[in-house]
Computed example of a mutant assay.
Amino acid sequence: MASSFVVGDQFRNKVTELLQKTDASLPQRLRLELEEILEKPEPATLSFSTARKLKTYLQDTGHPFYLHELLEDSSLHLPEFVKPPRNPELVARLERIKNKLANEEYNRITRNVNTQEITRSGTLADFGRQVRSVKAVVVTIFNFLVTVVAAFACSYMGSQYLFTETTARVISAVIAASVVGLAELYVLVRTMEGELGEP
Rank of each mutant, 00 (worst) to 15 (best):
S3L: 10
F5H: 05
V7L: 10
V7Y: 08
G8Y: 00
D9K: 14
F11Q: 03
T16R: 11
L18M: 15
L18I: 08
Q20K: 15
D23A: 14
S25F: 00
P27W: 09
P27S: 05
L30N: 04
L30R: 01
R31K: 15
L32S: 12
L32Y: 02
E35L: 14
E42A: 13
A44R: 00
L46P: 06
S47F: 01
S49W: 02
T50V: 14
R52L: 07
K55I: 01
T56L: 11
Y57K: 00
Q59S: 11
D60V: 12
H63K: 10
E69Q: 13
E69L: 03
E72K: 09
D73W: 07
S74W: 02
S74I: 04
L78M: 13
P79K: 12
P79M: 08
E80S: 13
V82S: 11
P88I: 01
E89K: 15
L90G: 05
L94C: 02
K98G: 14
Y106N: 08
Y106V: 05
N107Y: 08
R108M: 11
T110G: 03
T110S: 05
R111N: 11
V113E: 08
I118K: 02
I118L: 14
T119Q: 03
R120I: 12
R120C: 04
S121A: 01
S121N: 12
T123M: 13
A125H: 00
D126C: 00
G128E: 14
Q130R: 08
V134P: 01
K135N: 08
K135I: 09
K135M: 12
V137T: 13
F144I: 13
L145M: 14
Q160N: 06
F163T: 09
F163I: 07
E165C: 03
T167D: 12
I171R: 09
I171A: 10
S172M: 13
A173W: 09
A176E: 09
A176G: 10
A177I: 06
V179M: 12
V180L: 07
V180F: 05
G181W: 07
V187N: 11
V189N: 08
M192N: 14
P199T: 02
